[in-house]
Design a protein around this nucleic acid. Structure first.
Lengths: 247, 247
DNA sequence: GAGTGGTCTAGACCACGAA
DNA sequence: TCGTGGTCTAGACCACTCG
């Protein structure tokens, strides 16, 4: 009679052990079994739970750490890493001077509840016309406007965000999502293209209507791959500047 | 008397063993100790050479493989991976239809030897005014011009390339560098910005002078981090389209 | 001091690929 | 068939963090 590893019953038995354990841990991480910062069970406990050797478990944890999902520190434990991608303003736009990583100021111009336009609905995976929160804001450095953002969030999940006093919101929204709703952003996809500025955007950016602007569309997901935010940002093309390092 | 590991004499003795072995392997790979595709010594041989256990060596090799430098295949051996980043045309521009990964056609408009302009000289790390090969070409899909490229290569290293018959050159230059000169590209840095088309570029791209174009500046390096190519490409901004996935 | 992850070793068996 | 890397185990000792 073969020994069953009940903890792995949901994984593909044809895969090597380490792959099955990795899949299962991935599932639990995505399911939010541990909050970011909260330690996972210690290695001997996890190894016992999966009925595998310490070496095999350690290999899996090392892989997940190298892929950026886990944080391992001697003496402290293994924790789920909080996603911390840079602000797209910093990744894509050249700032006044090089150097310091300042958080750009944020001025919210409007926040309301509206029926989702087609493109927003399909990005957020909600029905056309479903209610969503819409935030419109400008991000600046030293008072110089650099990026105009439209942000859409699904309801009813983001109702607390729709009601929070505007002056309590910091310039970075993801920490606010976590504080107000317990929603932790795990990954995002961004899509860049070049368009031309409409009147309102040109006005906010201080450029001429029709002048080229870089458009960044971002879809943000939780660790469980739930789509929870869609934003469309525009910045002056003459300030655009992006570097890629290729393997 | 402590046992010396002569193979590691060039590495920092305060580092853990696996890190020292990794540094040394990295150095040898960069130095071209093995050609891409040629197998490294087998694990037991390498482990003996470094006087470390198989497990430790395997950990190092697995790391290098996961970072894309090595290719490991059961029964075949461990080899240095040939860099194979996608053509920037595919990474940054939307093509007629989605789907197939065709290699765009290439039409060389000019090739000559010239004195390096300031920006080219500083990118290639050669003296201002030093002789360089300059290639000017247009890349198209289905006869539709998508990208205009200026490519500069340092002399005398690229002399064979300057002399090769144009009709023997394929649309992808990196395989040609390898064939003609034994130069293998290991990595590249790209820098994107938005400018406006000059007359000549507009003419080649079929757009109006002054209309927005995306500029891609690429510096290509060998595994040994020697700078061997600088290219500046321009494509129509309305065809620009780039996706990033963030952790 | 107790518990955590970090490093390192030794050895077994399996699956793949080339000769 | 033989040598390669792939998987898995067992156990030792060290270094860091925290109460």
């Amino acid at each position: 009679m073969t020994k069953e590893r009940s903890a792995l019953s949901q994984t593909d038995g044809r895969l090597p052990l380490h792959a099955r354990v990795k899949d299962d841990l991935l599932r639990r991480i995505r399911a939010g079994a541990w909050r970011p910062g909260e330690p996972l069970p210690a290695e001997p406990a996890l190894a016992a739970e999966y009925d595998i050797s310490l070496g095999t478990l350690r290999r899996v944890l090392a892989e997940l750490a190298s892929e950026g999902l886990l944080d391992r520190r001697q003496g402290r434990g293994t924790t789920v890493r909080r996603a911390s991608f840079h602000d797209s303003l910093f990744r894509f736009f050249r700032l006044g001077d090089g150097g310091e990583a300042r958080v750009p100021e944020s001025r919210i111009i409007g926040r309301d509840i509206e029926a989702a336009p087609d493109d927003v609905a399909s990005a957020l995976l909600v029905d056309d016309g479903a209610d969503v929160v819409h935030v419109h804001r400008v991000r600046s450095i030293d008072g110089r406007p650099l990026l105009v953002e439209d942000i859409w969030l699904p309801l009813p999940r983001f109702a607390p965000f729709a009601q929070a006093a505007l002056d309590t919101l910091g310039p970075l929204l993801y920490p606010e999502y976590e504080r107000l709703l317990g929603v932790v952003i795990g990954s995002a996809k961004e899509q860049l293209s070049v368009t031309s500025a409409d009147v309102a955007t040109a006005d906010l950016l201080g450029c001429e209507e029709g002048s080229p602007v870089v458009q960044i569309e971002r879809t943000a997901l939780t660790h469980a791959d739930e789509t929870v935010e869609f934003r469309r940002s525009h910045g002056r093309a003459d300030a655009f500047h992006y570097q890629v390092e290729i393997r």
